[in-house]
Design a protein around this nucleic acid. Sequence first.
DNA 1: CTTTGTGAACAGTTTCACAGCC
DNA 2: GGCTGTGAAACTGTTCACAAAG
Lengths: 239, 239
Amino acid sequence: MTQDRNRGVDDPARLRGIVRDIPQATVARLPVYLRALHELAERRVGTVASQVLARAAGVSPAKLRKDLSCLGSYGTRGVGYDVATLAEQIARQLGLTQDWPVVIVGVGKLGQALANYAGFADRGFRVVGLLDADPARVGQIVAGSVVRPATELERVVAEHGVCIGVLATPAGSAQRMCDRLVAAGVSSILNFAPVVLSVPDGVDVRKVDLSLELQILAFHEQRKDAVRRAAGVLGAMRA
Amino acid sequence: MTQDRNRGVDDPARLRGIVRDIPQATVARLPVYLRALHELAERRVGTVASQVLARAAGVSPAKLRKDLSCLGSYGTRGVGYDVATLAEQIARQLGLTQDWPVVIVGVGKLGQALANYAGFADRGFRVVGLLDADPARVGQIVAGSVVRPATELERVVAEHGVCIGVLATPAGSAQRMCDRLVAAGVSSILNFAPVVLSVPDGVDVRKVDLSLELQILAFHEQRKDAVRRAAGVLGAMRA
DNA sequence: CTTTGTGAACAGTTTCACAGCC
DNA sequence: GGCTGTGAAACTGTTCACAAAG
């Protein structure tokens, strides 16, 4: 807070400082912990130690404890964490106790997969609009909703107070649709199109890039190959 | 290299040290640079300055230059980078100059979207098998290939020397299919199922979690709301 | 004069290890 | 005894600023 002393009260950085801030890396893991907690709750587990929860989430116990300490002290020393309480606290921090109306722009195979994805509905994300520019897709029923023409984007956003948009269009139309979402009032975008979107300040974009992930794997795979070859050469040299 | 002095030559960590290592964060950005370079090449741009390429890739020029310096000195001071040369070097580092046979396990909407995704074929990823446990899907044609029964997993992996597997199954069967992929010799897995996979050492897993990304956006969106409310309160107090 | 390549400062994240509480 | 919460240390990644090169 000290570094904000000379800012005005209207300064967004100052105002953000009022809310306790949580490191990016921690925020990205909270949903993982939440899922693990839901699984434990289903198995009627009442209390869990950091060791066990960490294993279920695929992180180290120390990291888990540090992450959870950002939310407050919800554990009991010598015992562990109450599964239900902790799940509730994480959900609250993530803003999942409220309902988030979402539009999906682009209803190809990927858009359809997203519309059908149970993980969305489970977490308070309600798909209130499926939009597509292709007249052949308009009118189809996907995941129980009718696909509407892209021209209705502004209407759907305004009608449901949509803040979060999912872009699953081809690369060519992603920026144009993004601009329209932002103009209509959407301030968070999940982008599946393989392009770098440009958006004004205050709009968050997260990108999921399918081919990027494979390329990273290819890098490591090639690296393993190189190591295997090097081992072979060194082995041969010794012989 | 100094810390490896007392390791044996068979130690994988030592052998990995022989290959020049590139920071994780840099590896994750190389595919983005590569895409930007391909776009520039299509527009017949021959040379590009870090400033311009950085903008196209959505990073800062300093970060771009530091990243590229890991690959060697392929720029010319006062001029910039040769688009074709740089693209080639990045592709080589990522291992995209070779062809990677890939299997997709689980051919629901998401699996179909992945099978049809042009970005894979473009980068040397060749889908050599579509597998599904559901008899209703077996035999269907998806992206020009026939869907085969999951029982053929081991045969397909062996036949094509598959190193990379893509998991797009429901959560319930992901770990089982993962175990079979690993047992068959796959050592890199791209996981779309919402579970934490456990794999032996030496196997790389990357996870793409659709609902996780939305939850992170919800967090930031809620945070913005809180800031807006705080601004409102402070504004009212002044009035 | 322009633009790269890079050491050095800085910022963010993870790990360690242990005090404090049950 | 067991387990959490947390400073301090170690590590990783980013930004700065400028010397070196064309």
